[in-house]
């Protein structure tokens, strides 16, 4: 392990000040990514700024408009057990339950999962289709970014120096909707996914089927990708029959550009894109139901 200074500021303001004053500093949340990377000498921060005392970053709340705001320090265990998340977005709670082991879920945070920026990150496909918004704060500014604009490459995010993620916001969906998440790893659990997929429809009178679709895929490109081609195809179909689902799942392949690595081959990833997309769509459409 490299050596570093460790600080655990009590307030967000102290934290942001420290980050501004120490360019070599890194926020430290659950440490489940950072500890492994430091051990491998993949990162060697000069200072770790432990976020764990900052109450402002904790907890899940629903505001008056029905938006859910999840503090960056919220652990995967907390999200997967959160009554409000379970009720409104069970597939997202479910996604968090896929993360690592119970021990990892007890420590790993949603902020860390997002900021780590892995294309295989468990929470991301769901957050993409939910149009989640990332709340960022530095000592001098506060901003909010749609999650789709947050990543610029594997492990690369748009976080500016001195900035941290304070929360993830899931905007309220005022129409009828349904979402689903599927993933496959090399064994049943405690493994990084080979492919992840999330899909959702929301009621939308302007589209022929009355549903507007969003699909996001993980681990098939340098960042999580939106399956634009598949979405467009579905958004133009009047009836979501089995054939349509089948074709949409095939179309999703156009949106993926997987590689072969030690986990699996490009070919198998493509197979999984098709299957997992199809399964998500089947879940949410219940066998070709027409909404209108």
């Amino acid at each position: 392990m490299p050596t570093f200074a460790y600080v655990c500021p009590p307030t967000l303001n102290d934290c942001l000040k420290l980050l501004k004053e120490n360019p070599g500093a890194k926020p430290y949340a659950g440490g489940t990514d950072l500890m492994v990377k430091m051990r491998d000498h993949a990162v060697s921060p000069q200072m770790l700024v432990d976020l764990k005392k900052i109450d402002k970053l904790k907890g899940i709340r629903e505001d008056a408009e029905g938006n859910i705001i999840i503090g960056a320090l919220t652990t995967h265990a907390e999200i997967s057990e959160s009554p409000v998340v379970l009720e409104k977005y069970p597939f997202f709670a479910h996604a968090c339950r896929w993360v690592g082991s119970q021990q990892i879920r007890n420590r790993g945070t949603i902020g860390g999962n997002i900021c780590n920026g892995s294309p295989a990150a468990e929470t991301l496909p769901s957050l993409y289709i939910l149009d989640a918004r990332i709340h960022l704060e530095s000592i001098s500014s506060t901003r909010t970014l749609p999650i789709r604009e947050f990543f610029c490459g594997p492990g690369k995010t748009c976080i500016l120096p001195g900035e941290i993620v304070t929360a993830v916001e899931i905007p309220n969906i005022s129409v009828e909707f349904s979402g689903s998440y599927h993933r496959q790893g090399r064994r049943k659990v405690v493994c990084i996914a080979m492919v992840t997929a999330a899909a959702m429809w929301r009621q939308d009178e302007t589209s022929p089927s009355g549903m507007r679709f969003s699909i996001a895929l993980g681990s098939v490109a340098p960042t999580v990708v939106v399956a634009k081609n598949a979405e467009n195809y579905l958004n133009e179909c009047a009836v979501c029959s089995d054939d349509v689902i089948e074709h949409a799942a095939m179309t999703a392949l156009k949106d993926a550009s997987p590689i072969s690595d030690i986990r699996t081959t490009c070919d198998y990833r493509n197979d999984l894109v098709y299957v997992l997309t199809k399964r998500c769509l089947k879940d949410i459409i219940c066998g070709g139901r027409e909404l209108k």
């Binding site: 090399r186 064994r187 049943k188 405690v190 493994c191 990084i192 030690i262 986990r263």
Partner: peptide, 28 residues
């Protein structure tokens, strides 16, 4: 039978960690 394999690429181990060398868990 299901998972384990030390991947060697020109003699170099490619998956020499418990994250990448897959063994069965209780769920399997």
């Amino acid at each position: 039978g299901l998972f384990e394999q030390l991947q060697l690429r020109k003699g170099n181990p490619a998956n020499n960690s418990l994250a990448d060398y897959i063994t069965a868990t209780v769920m399997d």
